[in-house]
Simulated scan of single mutants.
Amino acid sequence: MKYTKELKTGILAVVAIVILIFGYSYLKGQNLLDSNRIFHAVYADVEGLSASSPVTINGMKVGQVTNISFLDERGLLVVTFNVDNDFKFSKNSLAQIYGGGLIGGKSLAIVPEYEPGMLAKTGDTLPSAIEEGIMELVNERLTPLQVKVERAIVSTDSLLTAFNEVLDTETRNNIKNTFNDLSETVRSFKNTAESLDGIVSGNSEKLDRTFSNLDEMSGNFNKFSDTLAQIDLNGMSGDLEKIIADFEKISNNLSSGQGTAGKLLTDDAVYDNLDRATKQMEQLLQDIKLNPKRYVHFSVFGKRPGPYDAPNDSLK
């Protein structure tokens, strides 16, 4: 049987179309010769998930996303994916979008549930969820920090503004003059310290002698303190109490008129007699002074004493 060129061209076209379909499906992750299970999940946002993204169970790749399309006019998205593994799981298992970092893209994970009699079949729609990725976690952690940094920047700006308002030209000049005065004061202290250093250096020997004398004085004070510690203060206190008692006894005797001194202080007659005796003694001494010859006489020729001079009556 002889084929015409048109038939051959048609057969080649059909084969090319079939190869193109199989190749396109293979590139999209679909193998038309395999009996894969097809599942669906509905999302409000697929977070960058794309066709041919891997589908995993417990981290193991079991399929891939085959199609993402709009479900309705509200913008809900339906994700279609296949599972080329015979692993059994419930139709209540969660289809969760996860991952997404600085380099890698999003993936779809099936979080399996094991419920007897409710196994997932091809064409079922699984519950959906989205796990926060690295960028979302970073943004979540950095947002409070960003707010704090912004507040700190605003506070710093306000503080700088307040400083600029307070530190006008006159205030700045005053602060500058104050630092200049402090510099002069420090320089003066430095000169004073150098002078004191010179004085100390020039009088080091005298200072050594002074400290030596102070050391000796301290030793003498220690010896004196030891001497005081050895004194019988109790005995001295007892003797002092006896002396005070004797003085008190004498004072009582004088006050009561006992003894000569007591009578002299309390008896007027004794005082008058003593006063008269004193006056007579004065007259006697005056008479001896005026007429010594009456009391002491010595003469070879027996000459009589001169005339008598009476003493002064004012002493009576």
Rank of each mutant, 00 (worst) to 15 (best):
G104E: 07
G104D: 09
G105N: 09
K106F: 03
A109R: 07
V111G: 03
V111H: 06
P112Q: 08
P112E: 07
E113C: 02
E113G: 06
E115D: 09
E115N: 11
G117D: 06
G117M: 05
G117P: 01
M118H: 14
M118E: 15
M118T: 15
L119M: 07
A120Y: 03
A120M: 08
T122G: 13
G123Q: 01
G123V: 02
G123W: 01
L126I: 03
A129D: 08
A129Q: 06
A129L: 06
I130P: 00
I130G: 00
E131C: 01
E131T: 12
G133P: 03
I134L: 14
I134E: 05
I134V: 15
E136F: 12
L137S: 06
V138S: 00
T143K: 13
T143N: 07
T143D: 06
L145K: 01
L145I: 13
L145W: 01
Q146K: 14
K148S: 12
V149E: 06
V149K: 10
E150Q: 10
R151M: 01
R151K: 12
R151V: 01
A152R: 11
I153Q: 14
I153A: 14
S155R: 13
S155E: 11
S158Q: 11
S158F: 05
L159H: 05
T161L: 10
F163S: 02
F163W: 07
F163E: 06
N164I: 04
N164G: 07
N164H: 04
E165S: 12
E165D: 08
V166I: 14
V166R: 10
V166E: 09
L167D: 02
D168T: 14
D168G: 14
T169C: 04
E170D: 08
E170M: 04
E170N: 10
E170P: 01
N173W: 00
N173T: 15
N174E: 15
I175L: 15
K176G: 10
N177L: 11
N177H: 12
F179S: 05
F179A: 11
N180I: 12
D181G: 03
L182S: 13
S183Q: 09
E184I: 06
T185M: 06
T185K: 10
T185E: 08
V186S: 05
V186I: 11
R187Y: 07
R187S: 14
